[in-house]
């Protein structure tokens, strides 16, 4: 009853039919998408929604194929089986090529596969009509020849026996990021820090990622979020994030409090920012521009041991004038580091 009253009140009195509460605009009311948006809003506000979804996932996987909300549920892990299109690879490649034309330095590119790309070989073919390997190949074919490509797919695929991808999330683990870092940093002209020099801190072993959120499947295995620490005397002098409204604030490489928040993956670099500038005590006057999505968040800390300055721009800003945030010509090297799920979702 409280639920009904709550939603009714939200709809009738709380501006549910106006832009905001349920994201319903006048246009939605005109063309008829208001009903769908309100329906989604009701689902999100459903009391005990996690439990409902868990029951739905449990019952659904017992009475039919273990695919819930475009997520394949296996004993070992959850895998994203959303529809993919090769056209997204073409469109994203255009954006990268366009950036390269306006950029004076050396541009590197790495597309990071999701857990489906690494572990999805045994999925029925109809669930992966366009594989991540095909997407990566198409993407790399479309990207201009002068951009230096890094084959993260092969690196991760070779190491698939290790804990390189989350079991409840599409993203890689810190170890997966480290494995790719070893190759990337060599291409950028540095010697990677060897694995044994790091002290690994398990911040949480109870991380339930984006695939868990989509299914609510409570029997899915939780993940570990690690921080790789190497005390070589290098320190962070400045780490300033600018949010999507243009407001800047000091942030840290890690936000431990985020582990208790709604998105524990914000442990790395905190809340999503449009632009982050990091200055370190590394005294080599080398600077790097990174353009990436959330996948890059746990990768950036590895780079801070090699550069005196790193600028990280959200890939969401890729199609816009990046120079509003940073003068790209000040950075002699730039890296695109984007998850394939970001590319297929946004392009």
């Amino acid at each position: 009853m409280t639920f009904i009253m709550g939603i009714s009140t939200a709809v009738i009195f709380g501006g549910g039919l106006t832009e905001g509460a349920s994201g319903v605009s006048k246009k939605d009311i005109l063309i008829g998408s208001a009903g769908d948006k309100l329906t989604e809003s009701v689902a999100d506000k459903l009391p005990f929604v996690k439990q409902w979804r868990s029951i739905g996932a449990e019952t659904g996987s017992k009475t039919g194929e273990p695919v819930v909300n475009d997520v394949y549920i296996s004993e070992e892990r959850l895998l994203d089986v959303s529809e993919r299109s090769l056209s997204s690879a073409v469109n994203f490649a255009k954006a990268v090529n366009s950036f390269d034309k306006s950029y004076g330095g050396t541009l590197y590119f790495a597309a990071i596969p999701t857990s489906t790309g690494i572990y999805g070989d045994n999925l029925p073919s109809y669930l992966s009509s366009v594989t991540e390997k095909q997407l990566t190949d198409r993407l790399y074919d479309e990207i201009d020849g002068n951009i230096r490509k890094i084959d993260a797919y092969t690196i991760l695929k070779m190491l698939s026996e290790n804990y390189i991808c989350c079991r409840s999330d599409t993203k890689w683990t810190s170890y997966g990021a480290y494995c790719v870092y070893r190759t990337v940093i060599q291409k950028l002209g540095f010697i990677p820090i060897s694995y044994d020099k790091y002290t690994i801190r398990h911040v949480t072993d109870n991380y339930h990622g984006n695939l868990y959120s989509r299914t609510g499947y409570m029997e899915s295995k939780a993940d570990i979020l690690d921080i790789y620490e190497y005390n070589d005397g290098t320190e962070i002098i400045e780490c300033v994030g600018t949010d999507y409204d243009g407001v800047s604030k000091d942030i840290g490489l890690y936000d431990i409090d985020a582990v208790e928040s709604g998105n524990p993956y914000n442990l790395y670099l905190g809340e999503p920012m449009a632009f982050i500038k990091i200055r370190t005590t590394v005294n080599n006057e080398k600077s790097l521009l990174v353009i990436g999505d959330e996948t890059a968040d746990c990768f950036i800390p590895f780079l801070t041991k090699h550069y005196s300055e790193i600028a990280f721009i959200s890939a969401d800003r890729c199609g816009e004038n990046i120079k509003e945030y940073v003068d790209t010509d000040l950075y002699e090297q730039a890296v695109f580091l984007v998850g394939l799920d970001y590319i297929t979702e946004k392009y």
Partner: peptide, 13 residues
């Protein structure tokens, strides 16, 4: 009804 609600709890329908 309970099972139907659980199945609809994702997209609301």
């Amino acid at each position: 009804l309970f099972i139907c609600t659980a199945f609809m709890a994702y997209s609301g329908q």
